[in-house]
Design a protein around this nucleic acid. Sequence first.
RNA 1: GCGCCCGUAGCUCAGCCGGAUAGAGCGUUGGCCUCCGGAGCCAAAGGUCAGAGGUUCGAAUCCUCUCGGGCGCGCCA
Length: 586
Amino acid sequence: MKHELEELLARAVARLREQGLLPDEGELPAPSVEPARDPAHGDYASNLALVLARAARRPPRELAEALLTALPPSERVERVEVAGPGFLNFRLAPAAWQAVVTEVLAQGPAYGTSSLGGGRPVQVEFVSANPTGPLHVGHGRGAAYGAAVASLLEAVGYRVHREYYVNDAGRQVDILALSVWLRYLEALGEPVAFPAGGYRGGYVAEIADALRRMEGEALRRAAAEVEEGLPPDAPDGDKEARLDALVARGRALLGEAAWRRVAELAGERVLEGIRRDLEAFGVRYDAWCSERRLVEGGAVARAVERLREAGHAYERDGALWFRASAFGDEKDRVLVRESGQPTYFASDVAYHLDKVERGFERIIDVWGADHHGYVPRLRAALQALGVDPQRLEVRLVQFAVLYRHGRKVQMSTRSGQYVTLRELLDEVGRDAARFFYVMRRAEQHLDFDLDLAKRQSADNPVYYVQYAHARICSVERQLREQGLERDPGRGERHLHLLREGHEVALLRLLARYPEVVEAAALAREPHQVAHYLRELAQAFHTYYNAHTFLVEEAGLRDARLNLVFAVRQVIRNGLGLLGVSAPEAM
RNA sequence: GCGCCCGUAGCUCAGCCGGAUAGAGCGUUGGCCUCCGGAGCCAAAGGUCAGAGGUUCGAAUCCUCUCGGGCGCGCCA
């Protein structure tokens, strides 16, 4: 609807240009039409005349009149008028609104989708948490947001590839392996003081049990032997140095092969848990990309080499640096450490280069907001490699703070004191979690009220929307119980009877849905869909309370049923985009 | 110290590529069930859009500064 009006305006502009009322050369702003906020302003309004006033060097109102005259007639538009400082207000013919019901029912699940993206490939990488422990509620937000953005892009016609980057190379994995091995030794009666920087979660001990079942006592070493001559742990010493020394000692005592077995077991177990949690959360991926594969396959070395060949890398203090400061970053960054080990940054450059080479025109990364300082260096690297840095789009997601009984739930990753995504799912359920996570703009801090998420009442927006859906299903059941026959064709022929204020409000909302999906997809803002659904549900509940659908008169009854079934379809489609179910009964 | 994000009703937030009287939910107060599910509906009260300048015909929206909150400034990931 919106686009049709914009098309009419574009033709009016073209005509005015022919008449010399508008400058013939140069780009003019594209006409834009918005749903009118105030019903007194009609159904849609355009500020085109105000926007063009300067270029045309004419008063906005005069220009608006000219546009009005030049506007081609349309049977869907009942009236257009100039108002206020120069707005064009459109009032649509009632039939234009009523037709949306038939459109929704005909398109079904496809209503709201479009081909805007033209099948262009887009990659969305999200969550990508280190496989060193279970996902927590912070990752949950990234998961819900990333999945919703991916669905939205798919809905508007992009070919979307969902990917999880697994940081399985690097020091963190060794620390996990170490933590598991120490728990294993402990269980065998060789207690080594657990390092301050080790992973303490219960899952570590579980993996240690598995290790014992697989390896028996083969990896047992005397505690004294493990600790002998190591630097002190925090608070007296440096906990990082202690960790590195423990890892080195473990490697030496077990041998590289055995150490790798421990590390792989631990990494796989944790990743398996992450996969299961995401699955339960309704989040699916097309690919899981392993950092270790990039390193071992030489992709990282190649990326580093390309930077060096392009003259953007140099050696200093025994390390290899990338000249990031030449590409807008605040300082240069290390690619290869003094030790010869590539940094995380180096593999990330390789990974993003790989994304580009795989042909993704647009690369969307969803990161925790604490990584924001990392964006400029990655962009810098892409630019240095001759890739347009605009192709990389980083979406930052702020943390979620849980509230229980009105109090903040304290969390700290370090001590392992955090609420896992799994626990959240067990407590509030998948639907409430998914919806709550995307209710707010991603870059806004989220206060997650656990009590509200569990509440089964109108205060809870998830239930409120789902209830509207279930209620419509209930109407359908009621229809059968009353022995009434529904005839959709008869409903379609009687859509002109839908003239009540509540009905018109619903029609307008239904017509707006595709615009909401499009706007939400382009802005990467699933919260727009959540807000829209609440609005739609409210309009439905209001209608439900004000009018009976199952009336005697068959024509009106079927028209109303067509309307509410269209509402049901849109609720289902919208909830689907957010990963929330649409129950038939509650 | 530098950089990024944020500050809108008692609370949680929309609105932010400038546009017509600043919206919603919760909470508060008062109403609505012989009627398709009351997990619902209706109504009222509630605002110096953090503050100060600037740009503009027009600023919650753009720019500058100040104040307040969060995050980041590793050869960690």
